[in-house]
């Protein structure tokens, strides 16, 4: 019995050596994954430790749930959470329906040159860097040179120029506007792809049965893209605390004047962790954020599975 096992192990080793060229091809990627994905996962333990630079991740002394308790007595956390959730909810209500509506409109266009032009224009901002978009935003919203203030004062809506980026109350709307401007076109592609899968014969049958434009969209096109919509909704719930582009916008356009409404969890972790070097506390916030996000994602997925039979995993 023992002998057999040994022989098995040896032939396994032999097999491994026989395909050493294949194994060598795996190696660089494997090292990358271990260093930049797996090692940081082990690094999460510093959330339960008092991280000391000179001691490192493994040698620093354990601290229990001290840092998690500190989160609940942190006076900044309430504002940060309100901003994170507020931005995510508003964006959920705007950035999910708008690309769907945009895709539905495009889908009704028969003039192919017009359609292609609109698509080309609307996809373009997605390929610009967020730092470029943020820089342009400082120009658009500028009280001096910005076209928004020029227009508002020129038409008499505003009496004098308004410093949008210095106003906490305006920040959420600026963030939503920039997100929509940059991503609406690109986000609509996934729905366009789902719509192109609609069976043309079903469409014809609906028309012969006397369905007008709206009934056709409601009864044929929307059901066809419903699975995609559900998946996007689930992902969005999972991202409530993370929000893809929120860091890009809040970091670049957040400043001392609007920080009560621009500071979000991700920028707060950066400030606490990197700038103030409170590594353990910042990691605890990040870990709690990830755990809650995972719970939200699984919950949304389960609810969707039960109610609509659509699920992400």
């Amino acid at each position: 019995m023992k002998k057999e096992k040994k022989a098995g192990a040896r032939s396994g080793w032999k097999e491994f050596l026989n395909q050493k060229d294949l194994q060598l091809m795996v190696l660089p990627a494997l090292i990358c994954i271990i260093l930049f994905n797996i090692a940081p996962l082990f690094g999460l333990q510093i959330a339960f430790k008092d991280y000391k630079l000179n001691l490192g991740i493994w040698e620093s002394p354990w601290a229990g749930f001290k840092h998690f308790e500190a989160i609940f007595s942190d006076t900044n956390i309430a504002d940060v959470l309100i901003n994170t959730l507020g931005l995510s909810f508003i964006k959920g209500f705007v950035t999910i329906p708008l690309p769907i509506i945009f895709a539905l409109l495009l889908n009704e266009v028969t003039h192919s040159a017009f359609k292609r032009t609109v698509q080309t224009i609307s996809y373009f901002p997605y390929f610009l860097s967020w730092s470029v978009v943020a820089l342009m935003a400082t120009s658009w919203f500028s009280p001096q040179s910005g076209f928004i203030n020029s227009f508002l004062t020129g038409t008499g809506i505003l009496e004098k120029p308004y410093f949008f980026l210095g106003e906490a109350g305006a920040f959420w709307w600026i963030s939503v506007f920039l997100d929509v401007w940059k991503n609406i076109g690109y986000s609509s592609i996934i729905y366009m792809a789902a719509m192109s899968g609609v069976d043309q014969e079903v469409m014809e049958a609906a028309v012969i049965d006397g369905a007008g434009r709206f009934r056709r969209i409601w009864h044929v096109t929307i059901p066809a893209i419903l699975p995609t919509i559900m998946i996007m909704l689930i992902l969005n719930v999972g991202n409530l605390l993370k929000g893809g582009s929120n860091f890009d916008i809040s970091y670049n356009l957040g400043n001392v004047l609007n920080q009560s409404r621009s500071e979000i969890l991700d920028t707060y972790v950066l400030k606490i962790g990197i700038t103030m070097a409170r590594f353990s506390y910042a990691t605890a916030i990040g870990l709690l954020q990830s755990v809650v996000s995972a719970i939200l994602l699984v919950t949304a997925n389960t609810v969707s599975k039960i109610t609509t039979n659509e699920s992400f995993f």
Binding site: P40, L41, G43, L44, G273, I274, F279, A282, G286
Partner: peptide
Amino acid sequence: YFNGGMIPTYLVV
């Protein structure tokens, strides 16, 4: 699907 987040990644780097 999983990553250590900003700070642990920074410390590894």
